[in-house]
Amino acid sequence: MSALTEPVETASGYRPGRTLPLRVELARQLGRRRTLIMGGILAALPFVLVIAFAIGGDPARRDGQVTLMDTATASGANFAALNLFVSAGFLLVIPVALFCGDTIASEASWSSLRYLLAAPVPRARLLWSKLVVALGLSLAAMVLLPVVALAVGTAAYGSGPLQIPTGGALDSGTAAQRLVAVVAYIFVSQLVTAGLAFWLSTKTDAPLGAVGGAVGLTIVGNVLDAVTALGHWRDFLPAHWQYAWVDAVQPHPEWSGMIQGTVISLTYALVLIALAFRGFARKDVVS
């Protein structure tokens, strides 16, 4: 039998699929300082807004238009919706970019990546474990904010229906269901940032470069979406659909915008994640 057809010997009991278990990676990431700091910032935002409203009084209407800001103090549900509205465009981008951009690049910066691969942890398994945990932490961050906001808002402004700025209200049960749908959509819309940060993490040994690059390109997308001269080309920008969830908190919800935004986000995310797996499989790891 030639050398090319000889079977590769492996250690007894070695199972590639059991290397770097998700619980081990999750425990590592939960114990990191940046995870705790990010969680603290998101949990503190509702308290900051309550203090701001207490100092400045109830939000004032502008030009006679009623917005989520105007109804923020109507109930705990309204306060939770406001927190999502003011955070979706930028604040919630940061934990996604941080958790996903810090995956491979941090191991490379610590010079531990080559030792993980020599353990041996298959490259695809390493990426999969890192990505799943990063996405799980990103989702947890997005759930943490409205949960804390709902509790704080209920304590400060009482429970009650979700008052719709354009008129009408949603009862507590319906409001809870709509807010769950909103959080799910925001998470899906942020998958583009997650995929971008993850791909950059496989291309650089600098975690801040991957995180900053993902945040920077996300901001560029928001800027391009503001350029009305682009016309219908903006429909292909993920940023164009990031607030489509507002249509879900209406007496008669409209889902078409969220569906289009979901398709756009998933398409970009799958392409970026595929590029990350493809590029890392061929990468010469020396860190």
Rank of each mutant, 00 (worst) to 15 (best):
G168V: 09
I55Q: 12
P165K: 10
M1F: 09
I51H: 13
A151F: 04
A124W: 06
F79Y: 12
Q190C: 05
L237V: 09
T103A: 10
T228S: 12
L68Y: 11
A181E: 13
A77C: 04
W255K: 07
A134D: 01
A169L: 11
A11M: 13
R123W: 03
L126M: 05
Y243W: 11
V223G: 00
R178F: 08
V286N: 07
V48P: 02
W233A: 14
D284T: 06
A105W: 08
P46C: 13
F198H: 03
A169K: 09
D284L: 05
A54V: 01
A88E: 04
Q260S: 08
L145V: 08
T71I: 13
G39K: 08
C100N: 10
A60G: 06
F236W: 15
Y185A: 05
A43K: 09
I94T: 09
A149N: 09
S256H: 10
T204D: 03
L117T: 01
E254V: 15
P165D: 10
F280P: 00
V24R: 13
V121A: 02
D225L: 01
I273T: 10
Q242C: 04
V271W: 11
V249N: 12
S12I: 13
R28K: 15
A44T: 14
A140L: 14
A119T: 09
F236E: 01
T154A: 12
R34V: 05
P146A: 09
S87G: 13
A274N: 08
D225A: 12
P238L: 09
A60M: 13
R178G: 04
V143A: 10
V66I: 14
F236D: 06
C100Q: 05
R61A: 15
E254Y: 15
T262S: 15
V192M: 11
R61Y: 11
S159V: 10
D63L: 11
V220D: 00
V180E: 07
W241G: 03
A281L: 12
F90H: 07
A244L: 07
L217Y: 01
T73N: 03
T228L: 09
A206T: 12
V188M: 04
T166N: 12
A169G: 01
P16T: 01
R18C: 00
T103F: 01
L272D: 04
F280N: 01
L144I: 06
G167K: 09
V121H: 02
D235I: 07
V8C: 07
